[in-house]
Structure formats: structure tokens, C-alpha cells
Design a protein around this nucleic acid. Structure first.
Lengths: 364, 364
DNA sequence: CTGAAAGCGCTTACAG
DNA sequence: CTGAAAGCGCTTACAG
């Protein structure tokens, strides 16, 4: 760097040698800039160029080391090739890191396969108040379309997006009409778990669900109830919520009542499961020795250490998070490309045999 | 070479009502589009607007749900408030999912704190051939600057970026001169592990490293060698590579040779560690009962089930991935804002006591 | 203090 | 088959 004194009057443009543009190629090849564009975009446009023109342009491009400017390309094409991913959660990412990640993996895989980049919108974490939520959601429009993920969602900003015809897809089932989503079939999978317990001989079971009215919770409760009814499990007192008092005390009570199996659900916080396994450990019980334990959903993370009282992996079902991510990207692209009607998919969950359920062993 | 493969595919315009632009605001507020731009960019430009004009513009923008188009902004201003993150790896993300995620968390946290959005550039996964690598790397210019992450890197596309003055930072130490990076101080941390073993009384140790010449591997080997030399460990035959034959056979041989501790390294695939722990389990050995085991780096994932033969968490050191992500974002912003000379940081690694090293117990 | 104009590098009708 | 023109949505001198 030789000249030190006064900085050049130039704007903060990055240094470096000037990059050749289409107009440079045009000059070199003796054609118009538009023709250069046509040649370089190849057969994509269906336009047929004279072979000689084509050759001249290509060799000039080669000669000059031309590289298309992705920013200009995107501006002119009216699509920026970017998909948004917006996650709602109170404390992203620490608490929900593990439930978020598999979805992100699926989204990223499919986006890559489709040649799309991803914009991660992170505003959700900071949204202490609803108005900043609105502002955060609005930014999503910077992408061609957006994926939303999270149990809870600010309704107004989303409705606004919907009214404006901005393409978006939820990951997870939604109640709102006219909204596209890709969800998991919790109802069927949960019913299957109840039926599995019944088949092992259980009759009196408890379902401990989170105190939360997200569709994922509602669906699971319905599945458990349906499954219990269909397979001969007792349905009285079947469902309890996590806000119903101390888990350890309830566990003791359940054992007194002759409950032989407990089902709980996995949500982004993992609170219901961790409360329950802690209570099991403190009570000195083991699963499935003393009590069968089933989980509706994939455990957020493999436990760092073996969980006292559990014989191994928890029985239940797994949520196809990665595939949900992939399917959501495909659906979003359909929407962006003008797919008219909102559509939705429900993906099947995979049963997990696990090691925590077995034949009933009535307590005391 | 001229290549025509530029994203995105091509256009049907998105359905629905168009996104509001500055000209819409201008019409609503009764001012020119240029004035809207001036108002919206705030005091950044130093231009002073009449408070009343400013108010009208801002409220019209709010009303219409205006969001600046990042692509247009970047084309016109060479700055769009977005940072790129590009990951190189042959098989992202399945194999390296867990090593990738903590870095992403750190990057995302710091980006959010600095008011920057993040673009995840996908496509590294598909790069079977080098030319598509080049095209993929080029897309990175859609951001103001970019973070690169991964053990291996296509040199040419990167050099090109560098020549053009595009700001970027590596996460992980690089050898190439003139490239900014944020790395981990593997040399010191690895030396400390060797010294820790020596202090426990070990003399004959093996270091099993991956057969891979990334700086992260090179640094660890150097640290182990330095540490061994400095602490009185034998250095003859200290280092072996994973391509040196069946691990189980080698383990038996080591025991015959009187080796009392084995060190290995964690990389994105986790191959060296998983091979070693499997061999330990099959040989019916336990750590640290029969053999001390140390790991250079954070295990990719907590094992799904307790690993047979290991008394608990593996001893060694942890890599501050999250903090590396954060530091890389800060450095990148410095570069973007005109920081002239490339700079680099090396972050300290945290020793992990773990439960797999102890005093030497010579085999047979 | 604000408008009119030029331009970032490209794509895409529309004429010829 | 190819050129001239308009435009993607913004920023930034430059006039008034």
C-alpha cells in the first residue's frame, strides 16, 4: 500500500480489481449486453442464438474471467433464492436447541437440494413484548417465502402476512384455516402407544401432559384418549396436566391407585419428561420393573448420563422432524411458484420400541 | 471460465399482493421515493429531514408493512446487514451435525446481538465436483461478508474472494497467509493433556490421530508431541494414524508394549473416538481401570447409551465452539467496517477432568 | 430541506 | 436471431 495520506474520496466499496461485467463482454464480443445475458443464461430461456455469436460471447467471457454477480442476478430475477426460517420460542436457542436442530437439518438439506439459501430470522429470541414480535415477523418478507416453527405463534403478524399473500408454511399442525403446514400425525402415533400398553396387559394408565394448548399437545391427548378407548384401557382419570401439583406426590398416589404405566409427552422444553424421570429416580423406582414409562415424541437430547431407574431408551414414538423440515421446504417452494391453494401434510411418526415398557407390575 | 449455472432457477413471480416498496410509501406520504430512502436509512446519512416529512414517511412505512429488500439494498449500497455462513463438508449435515451446531448457536447469538441477519449458504453438501464448489462459494457475495467453517476448503474460490476484497473469516485456524480466522488453541490444550497423563505417572502413551491434514489435526499432534517431550512421556512411537490398520489389533499390541494411556482426537466425523471405544468394549477393557483414555476435543454428541468400558465422561479438553462462533462474527464485522489488516484469534480450550484417566495400570 | 436523475449488474419482454 | 429499452428496489450525488 503506497499512498497513505488522504483516503480516496471513494465510498466504502470493497477494494480489489474491477470485476468484468456483461457489458465488458459485450464490448469485447461486439454484441449487446442483452445478448451476452441471453448467451450466458444458456438454454434456460429457450432462446436460440446463432452459434457463432454464442461462441464469441463465451470465449470473451472466458477470456475476461467473467463471473455473474449474484446480487444483481437476484434483483433482476425478482426472486432472491432465499427462504426464511423463523423460530418462535421464548428462549432460543439454549432451551430448545435440540428440538430445533433436527428440523433445521431437514430444512437445510432440502433447501440445498432445491438451490435455495436460507435466512435465519433470530428476532424471536428477543421478543419480550408483542409489538417487537410484529416487527420481527415483518422482516421475514426479505425472503421469497418463510417457514415458521414453534409451538406458539403471534397470530396478528402472521395473519397480516397471510392477507398480503406472502407465502409461508408452518412446521407443525395449525388450527387456523387457510394456513399451510407440515405436521406430524400425533393422534395416530399416540393411540398406538396406548394400544401397545394395553396389549402388554396394562389397564390403568396415566397420561401426564404439559399444561399447554398447542396443537401438538391437543393431538396427543386426543390420540391417547382414542387409543385407550379403543384398546380397553380405563379412561377415567387418564389425563393429568403438569400443573396439577408435585410430580413425586402424584407418582406415589398413582402407584397407590394401581397405575401400572405412565405416558408423558415431549415438548420443546422437555419439562414433563424430566420432571417424571426425576420423580421416578427419587422414588427409587425402575422402569419397566416397577412401572412402564412411555414418551410421546423424540427425547430432546440423549441424556448425558444414563438416567437412574430407566433400563434404556424410552419407549414411545419418534417425530420425523428432519422429514418435516424437508417437506416444509418443498411445500413452500410450491407456494412461491404460484401454487394456489394452501395445502398441508401430516407425516407418520415412527414407533420406538425402547426399553421402558413391559408387562404391568402393580405397586404395593 | 464463464459459468452459466447461477441461482436461482427462474421466475414466476410470487402470487399475492406485491411487497410494499419505497415508491409505495412515497405515494402514500406524498414525497419522492428518494426522500423515503433518506428517511428510512435514518441519521446514517447525516441528512436532516423536516420532522413532519419524517413522521409521515415513517407512519406510511409502518402502515404498509414495509421491509427493505436486502438484495436491492446490497446492489445499491454494497451493504445489506446480512452475514453469510458457509459450511464445507463432504456430507453436511448428517455426519457433522453435532459439531456444526454449537458454532451456529454462537454465530446466531452474536449476529442477533449485533443486529445482523444470517444467511445460511447451503450447497456445500452437493459439491461433488470442484466447479460447483466455485459457483456455491460465489453466492456468498449476496451477504456483506461471510464466515467459513469446515476442516477442508476449496482453495481457489476462496482465493478469488480474497483477491476481490470480499470480507470473510474462517472458523478454525488456517495456514494461508492473509486470511482472518478464529481458532482454538489446540497446541496448548493438547500439551496439557499429555502433561496431565505424565503427572498421573504414565510414561508410555499412544496418540491415535485421524488421517487428515487439517490444521486442527496438525496442531493437536504438535501439542501432544510438545507436551510429551516437556513432561517426560516417551516420544518414540507416540503418534499413530487411523489408517494404520485394525484398531482392535493395535490396542492389543499397545497393551503388549506396555502402553497405559491412549489419546485420540475428535473431528467432525468422530471416527477415531468411536473406533477406539468400540475396540475397548470388544476387548472387554475398562477405562481408566485397564487403560486411561483421553480425547482432544468435545465429543460430537453425548452417547445415546452409556459406552461400555467407560467410567463416565471422557477426559481431555473441550473446544469453545460457541465462543468461536461469537468471536468470528465480531471479527467479520470489523473487517466489513473497513478494518484493514486481516487479524486472527486463538481461543483457549477448557480442560475436562472426566472419568477416563487415572494412574497407569500396565496390561498383562 | 426535498426532488429528479443516474446507476448498481443483471433479466426480460418487445421490436425489428 | 439480436438490439434497444425498461425495470428489479434501492442509494447517492446533484440540483434546486
Amino acid at each position: 500500500m503506497s499512498d497513505t495520506a488522504s483516503p480516496p474520496p471513494t465510498p466504502p466499496r470493497p477494494a480489489g480489481r474491477a470485476k468484468p461485467r456483461q457489458s465488458d463482454i459485450a464490448r469485447a464480443a461486439g454484441v449487446s449486453q442483452a445478448t451476452v445475458s441471453l448467451v450466458l443464461r444458456g438454454a434456460a430461456t429457450g432462446v436460440v442464438l446463432a452459434p457463432e455469436t454464442r461462441r464469441r460471447v463465451l470465449s470473451a467471457a472466458e477470456e475476461l474471467g467473467y463471473v455473474p454477480d449474484p446480487v444483481a442476478t437476484r434483483l433482476a430475477a425478482a426472486r432472491n433464492g432465499m427462504l426464511g426460517l423463523y423460530t418462535f420460542s421464548t428462549t432460543f436457542p439454549t432451551d430448545v436447541a435440540h428440538s430445533y436442530y433436527p428440523v433445521l437439518v431437514g430444512v437445510e438439506e432440502e433447501a440445498a437440494a432445491q438451490g435455495q439459501d436460507l435466512i435465519l430470522f433470530t428476532g424471536a429470541s428477543r421478543a419480550a413484548d408483542p409489538t417487537s414480535d410484529a416487527a420481527a415477523v415483518r422482516r421475514v418478507r426479505a425472503a421469497d417465502g418463510c417457514l415458521f416453527f414453534g409451538r406458539h405463534v403471534p397470530r396478528d403478524p402472521i395473519r397480516r402476512l397471510s392477507e398480503d399473500g406472502f407465502p409461508f408454511v408452518y412446521i407443525g399442525r395449525r388450527e387456523e384455516p387457510g394456513i399451510s403446514y407440515v405436521g406430524a400425525d400425533y393422534v395416530s402415533a399416540s393411540a398406538e402407544v396406548a394400544a401397545r400398553l394395553a396389549a402388554l396387559g396394562h389397564r390403568r394408565v396415566r397420561y401426564l401432559r404439559e399444561n399447554d394448548d398447542a396443537p401438538a399437545s391437543t393431538d396427543r391427548e386426543r390420540g391417547v384418549a382414542d387409543g385407550a378407548r379403543g384398546s380397553g384401557l380405563e379412561t377415567d382419570g387418564l389425563v393429568e396436566r403438569t400443573d396439577g401439583g408435585d410430580v413425586e406426590a402424584r407418582l406415589a398416589r398413582w402407584r397407590d391407585e394401581g397405575v401400572t404405566a405412565v405416558i408423558t409427552e415431549e415438548t420443546d422444553t422437555g419439562a414433563a419428561l424430566s420432571g417424571l424421570t426425576a420423580a421416578v429416580a427419587r422414588a427409587g423406582l425402575s422402569c419397566p420393573g416397577d412401572l412402564s414409562l412411555a414418551l410421546l415424541g423424540t427425547p430432546a437430547a440423549a441424556p448425558a448420563a444414563p438416567v437412574p431407574g430407566l433400563a434404556g431408551a424410552i419407549s414411545g414414538f419418534g417425530v420425523p422432524m428432519r422429514e418435516m423440515g424437508r417437506a416444509a421446504v418443498r411445500l413452500l417452494l410450491d407456494l412461491i411458484e404460484g401454487g394456489p391453494a394452501p395445502r398441508s401434510h401430516l407425516l407418520a411418526c415412527e414407533p420406538v420400541a425402547g426399553a421402558t415398557i413391559g408387562p404391568p407390575h402393580p405397586g404395593r
